[in-house]
Write a protein that binds this DNA or RNA. Structure first.
Lengths: 338, 338
DNA sequence: GCGCATTGCCGAATCGATTTGGCAGGCATC
DNA sequence: GATGCCTGCCAAATCGATTCGGCAATGCGC
């Protein structure tokens, strides 16, 4: 028994003006006497009017919806839904930031998987935010082909607007931090190198090593999961001529695997090996024995900035934009001397 | 330089019929000759026509958007965005299931925080899914007051459509499982008791105990976080007259805390104490020393069912519906004898 | 007091679909 | 052969906003 929605017609009738004038008064456009405008605004407030998003957008030729998609394949279609297997927390926080900001700016943000059939997908939204874009993302390709506005979080080879962290500085600051605690030779533990952030971290790491004449140690897990990573790091830690005293990991799961391996080998953290994750997550706060130092990528902020950027692009204010979100280091027990 | 969107006018012109006939042919309504209909459909496919959601919904008097909100306060507004502190993975999976199903059925699903200013919020969507509804959720109250369709995942005191797990059976099966492994006296470790799932688990636990003449042991954490929970469970485990040989926890974080405490006390899991989490999460798979047995609540499925239900409600097919999603038990090392 | 510009307001078109009512024409009925 | 009933199709109204063009009324300069 809900009463019919209040439309602009009701406001116009109540205020004794035409629909056109009511619209102009409410939007601050056109030529309307100040007194009339104020009256319309008062009436609108009194009757509880809110503009219908649909009609507004229909007129403006857009949908008022944005879409966020995650490019990497943690999102495998399994059963009926998505089954994200890692980085859940990071993506969730990005989504939270993006959703709220979109809403504040009059858009609704939905999350959909990259592998959704592209057709209906793209026509349902005005723009697209892709997180950790891979070069062969089909959805992203389709979006570019059809000229639909697109912003990525992280970079790929396409010439798009993006927002990203400064992973070079972040990685360097992590290395500097552990070196003040006596760790002079860090290893880098990674899984894949197709994402821009991993490549950035890798090159920052290599630069650091070469500037100091240290031989880099790159450890590579066959996959992002803890069970895939643990044997690798365990073997490396157990090696007779271990040539590193600390480990930087590109994923929180790899840090987790590292701590597990250290525990299994009865190595002390941070005494025998220091650990830094180059991406933070809730669990690192509670580690196994020790909490783990990590880079805070400020994912909420990444989502917000991406949405701001996307809206600017689709409003035609700018052609392309790039923005860097700073990183901070959450120092925890895994790198605390003493 | 993107070409103008293909509208139904284009299809009609190309097929040599009126817009009305084109619409009827495509929607299978009205009286249209089979040959004409087929021709229209073919033309639409050829020119790549997809109906504009906006116009469709404007006409139907709805928005085509649904909203998912999480009622508990892991979502504290901190800085500019949401900062979920626990259950992230569960909520994310629910959202995934809900988003995809909504999209398949012609809706877009957005996630917004409960504390968003209700006004614009509610008018932006046709219906609402609230996860773990609290009784005093302001958004939910507003939705009910304004008669907007609403489905909850978990139950509260309001008389709404809901989907929920069968926590009674789940809890009982967990208790049965550990008892076959020799654990005869389980403690229940919980944080708050305002959510329906906790109350269900609690009463199932009490039933189990009383049926067997066991004195129940309820342990209560001051909060959901690991650091809040650990001292409590540690004290209980260290107690001289410990009266339990296993622990059921209502949250994954509490299970985590339990394993940490056991490790700190040098207790063997599952030898000295078995652990079961009544909600699964990725990290339980990798535990600390041992992986932790947990109930799989099938959150993706919960999201899907909630959306199906919501759409049925708002299409007026049903007044109210309730559905139960079964639970399964993921057995892991923390309860494996031997 | 005559033009001209400006101000304030409104009618009507528009966005892209759906839906209603009705117009022809064909066919069966009596 | 007039009547009535389908069938197939379409013109026009509708949803709720925005926006353009134009019409009066007013103000201003000379």
């Amino acid at each position: 028994m809900q009463s019919r929605r209040v439309t602009i017609k009701d406001v116009a009738r109540e205020a004794g003006v035409s629909v056109a004038t009511a619209s102009e008064a409410l939007n601050g456009k056109g030529r309307v006497a100040a007194s009339t405008r104020q009256n319309v605004i008062d009436v609108a407030a009194r009757v509880g009017y809110t503009a219908n998003r649909l009609a507004k957008n229909l007129n403006a030729g857009r949908t008022g919806s944005l879409v966020l998609a995650v490019s990497p394949q943690p999102f495998t279609a399994q059963g009926a839904g998505l089954q994200p297997e890692w980085d859940i927390e990071y993506y969730f926080r990005v989504l939270n930031g993006a959703s709220l900001r979109a809403f504040e700016r009059g858009f609704l943000m939905s999350m959909l998987p990259t592998h959704t059939s592209s057709r209906g997908f793209l026509s349902a939204a005005d723009g697209l935010v892709v997180v950790d874009p891979s070069d062969d993302d089909p959805l992203l390709a389709e979006a570019i082909r059809s000229g639909r506005p697109c912003v990525t979080i992280g970079r790929n080879s396409a010439d798009l607007s993006w927002v990203d962290n400064d992973f070079a500085t972040g990685t360097t600051s992590a290395l500097a931090h552990i070196s003040t605690n006596g760790a002079s030779r860090a290893a880098l533990f990674l899984s894949e190198t197709s994402s821009s952030y991993v490549r950035d971290e890798l090159s920052a790491y290599l630069d650091w090593c070469s500037a100091r004449g240290i031989e880099p140690v790159i450890l590579r897990s066959p996959g992002p999961r803890v069970d895939e990573a643990e044997p690798v790091i365990r073997a490396a830690l157990a090696s007779d001529d271990r040539r590193f005293d600390s480990v930087l990991t590109t994923l929180d799961t790899l840090a987790h695997a590292t701590e597990r391996a250290a525990m299994a080998l009865d190595l002390d953290v941070p005494g025998d090996v220091q650990i830094v994750s180059l991406a933070d997550s809730r669990y690192l706060d509670y580690g196994l024995r020790k909490s783990i130092t990590a880079l805070d990528l400020h994912p909420v902020r990444l989502g917000e900035v991406a949405v701001d950027m996307l809206i600017e692009v689709l409003e035609g204010n700018v052609e392309r934009r790039r923005e860097v979100v700073p990183i901070s280091l959450n120092v925890r027990e895994s790198t605390l001397a003493g």
